[in-house]
């Protein structure tokens, strides 16, 4: 007998469609990325996507689960895109392949695949890569129109796959540190913050180019909010707390701590607020829990950015808060219908 029980009707929405909308929401950011940093990012996204799908299929086969419905759910693609967007586009091809394969196989499928993983797979991939390959992970493409020399798309491809740069060029000539990294290094050398920010790599909001990409992610995030794919609690709590903490430090000592807006539009803050923290599987389910989760992530992000050893804190902050999710959920259970005023 088939399972024919009430309710007999349901909304036509599917997981696949939700994930697809998230992927769509990433497009404005990716387009701006290409505009400012060249098409190399498209290569990493493609590589990551192919690796993710292949790993996903292999793992499903090994686990004796149906392959087709899970490949179509777009969740592996989303992980791949997020990971590709967090690592330098000019990184060697094996870096993204190893990272993607690791996060899909270990962080996702060892836990039982979609819906079961306690850690955000993309961030696990990023953390593994930055810990294992710190050098490759810190050479970012110089925004177009800023470096002395610019690589053509063919030259970029050649570098990604073979590691060979056109004659006479060193890697340092075509890449640079991220704005956050630059800021941290310069602050270490005891330069005042306002002086550092006048360097050409910085722009009015944060980093040249990267700030516009962040705006692209913000636009995509607003679309997700409008279409009710994500709830407002996470991004608002994250950006709010980040602003608050950065604001307090900035007011206390502007020469050491940059303005909160800089933190909003640099690094992966926007991507994190709307796309990484909002992964429903690895974030709390209660409203209060979402607030605590995102606020904690923001605080940790700021601390790691300012005091920590890594250039950006989103990935580690996300993973650290992922650890806390089961407890946050357990201790923020809302009162159920009819049981609110009791025991006051």
């Amino acid at each position: 007998m088939s399972a024919f029980f009430s309710p007999f009707i349901s909304k036509p929405d599917t997981v696949s469609a939700i994930m697809l909308k998230v992927l769509l929401a990433l497009l404005p950011g990716i387009a701006l990325y290409v505009w400012y940093f060249g098409p190399a990012i498209l290569v990493s996204i493609t590589l990551a996507s192919l690796t993710a799908l292949a790993t996903e299929a292999a793992m499903l086969k090994l686990r004796k689960r149906p392959v087709a419905p899970f490949l179509k759910d777009n969740s592996a693609l989303l992980t791949a895109w997020l990971l590709a967007l967090s690592i330098p586009p000019l990184a060697p091809w094996w870096l993204i392949v190893v990272g993607t394969a690791f996060c899909i196989a270990v962080a996702k499928h060892l836990y039982g695949g979609l819906g079961n993983n306690p850690f955000n797979p993309a961030m696990v991939g990023y953390a593994v890569l930055i810990v294992s390959f710190p050098v490759q992970m810190t050479h970012w493409v110089t925004p177009l129109g800023m470096g002395a020399t610019e690589l053509s798309f063919v030259q970029q491809l050649q570098y990604i796959f073979s590691g060979i740069l056109p004659g006479g060029l060193t890697l340092d000539a075509v890449t640079m540190a991220t704005p956050l990294d630059t800021l941290k290094t310069q602050l270490h050398l005891a330069h005042p913050a306002n002086e550092i920010l006048t360097q050409p790599i910085f722009s009015s909001l944060a980093g040249h180019g990267s700030e516009v990409v962040a705006i692209g992610f913000l636009i995509g995030g607003l679309y997700l909010l409008a279409s009710k794919i994500i709830s407002w609690h996470l991004p608002v709590a994250f950006l709010g707390t980040l602003f608050l903490v950065a604001g307090i430090f900035h007011l206390a000592d502007p020469s050491h701590y940059v303005a909160p807006v800089f933190h909003w539009f640099s690094g992966a803050a926007m991507l994190g607020a709307f796309f990484i923290l909002t992964d429903p599987i690895t974030s709390p389910t209660t409203h209060k829990g979402k607030f605590i989760f995102a606020a904690g992530a923001a605080l940790l992000t700021y601390l790691i950015r300012v005091y920590g050893a890594f250039p950006d804190g989103i990935a580690f902050a996300t993973l650290l808060m992922n650890i806390c999710v089961p407890l946050i959920d357990a201790y923020t259970q809302p009162k159920v219908f009819g049981k609110k005023e009791k025991k006051a």
């Binding site: 939700i18 419905p69 039982g112 819906g115 429903p280 599987i281 389910t285």
Partner: peptide, 12 residues
Amino acid sequence: PAPPAMPCIRCT
């Protein structure tokens, strides 16, 4: 009949 059930993604 409802499509096959996928795992819960905790979308709430």
